[in-house]
């Protein structure tokens, strides 16, 4: 392939490598810059000396954030939310995708059920009716509010359903002949056969729950119930100085606002970066999971 290339194509290739390198660097530099600030000394950060490498390396900002009770409380809420939310999401995704993957000839109501779920993708009732419903149910300030309203991730159900439908029919036919029921067929045959897809969807759910912030912000009345991203919204984006205690103001002379914000940004994205290698291995497959045909 590479042998008889025209000079103009060789020139294009060189240009292409340079361009792709430049775009990648442009994508990653903002992250590296803020990471460098988080490890820099307070004075270097406020004097704008930090570029892409820490100046006056220190972990003071991280020590400050990790000793902040509000941060740790919010982290705890987030961890609980992710664990509970992902289990609920995945159990319901599998339980729902399996019947929907049946042949409509054999499961007559299959199409009616499919439309029942699909309509929720087509029509969104809007913020206020959604908020009022959760409020009326008395779920505000409860962890359940954050995990129940999105308990059935319809889009994931469709992806898994399409994957289930591609599994060879012969396997389940022989399972049924051996006396297996639908439950056995689902857990013992379908789930193990689609392990990579289920792993992909699980990772999507983890990322989704971890990154959610707006629900926490409006469904929780007390900041001590905020998950981490909602808490960060109030300290990193919507900087509200009235929330600072005197202890904070004293400490801020040592760990300036900018370095502590940077440290919180990175602590909050750490779990994402930690699961990213796994995500990457699976999501290529997950994205194309029978979603686009033709």
């Amino acid at each position: 392939m590479t042998k008889h290339e025209s000079p103009s194509y060789k020139l294009f290739l060189a240009f292409n490598y340079a361009l792709l390198t430049a775009i990648s660097l442009l994508c990653i530099f903002p992250l590296i810059h803020v990471l460098a600030i988080s490890f820099s000394s307070s004075s270097a950060a406020s004097a704008n000396l930090v570029k892409f490498w820490p100046v006056g390396f220190t972990t003071k900002a991280y020590e400050y954030v990790l000793n902040k009770p509000e941060f740790m409380t919010a982290l705890g809420v987030s961890l609980k939310r992710v664990m509970l939310g992902v289990v609920i999401n995945m159990v319901l995704t599998i339980l729902t995708a399996y019947p929907l993957a049946r042949d409509p000839e054999k499961f007559r109501q299959r199409n009616a059920y499919a439309w029942y779920f699909f309509i929720t993708i087509l029509f969104n009732t809007g913020l206020i009716p959604w908020y009022m419903t959760i409020k009326t149910l008395g779920l505000t300030d409860s962890l359940w509010a954050l995990v129940l309203y999105g308990a059935v991730p319809v889009f994931n159900v469709i992806l898994l359903m399409n994957f289930f439908r591609q599994l060879p029919k012969e396997i389940e036919e022989s399972a049924f002949l051996d006396g297996a029921g639908h439950m056995t067929n689902m857990w013992r045959i379908f789930v193990p056969l689609s392990a990579p897809s289920i792993a992909t969807l699980t990772l999507f759910c983890i990322v989704g729950h971890w990154n959610s912030w707006f629900d926490g912000l409006i469904l929780m009345n007390f900041p001590q119930h905020y998950p981490l991203q909602s808490y960060l919204q109030t300290v990193v984006v919507n900087i509200d100085t009235s929330l600072k205690s005197t202890r904070d103001i004293e400490l801020l002379s040592i760990v300036n606002d900018r370095t502590s914000r940077a440290a919180q940004i990175f602590l909050a994205s750490f779990p994402i970066i930690a699961v990213y290698p796994f995500l990457q291995r699976f999501f290529l497959q997950g994205m194309t999971l029978g979603s686009v045909k033709g």
Binding site: P30, R261, L279
Partner: peptide, 22 residues
């Protein structure tokens, strides 16, 4: 290149806004 350009997709707008504001 793929590893780098896919990464911001997985970060929330809280994180990315914090970075952009800075």
């Amino acid at each position: 290149v793929q590893t780098i350009v896919y990464l911001p997709h997985f970060m929330s707008w809280i994180i990315l806004s914090g970075i952009l504001i800075d």
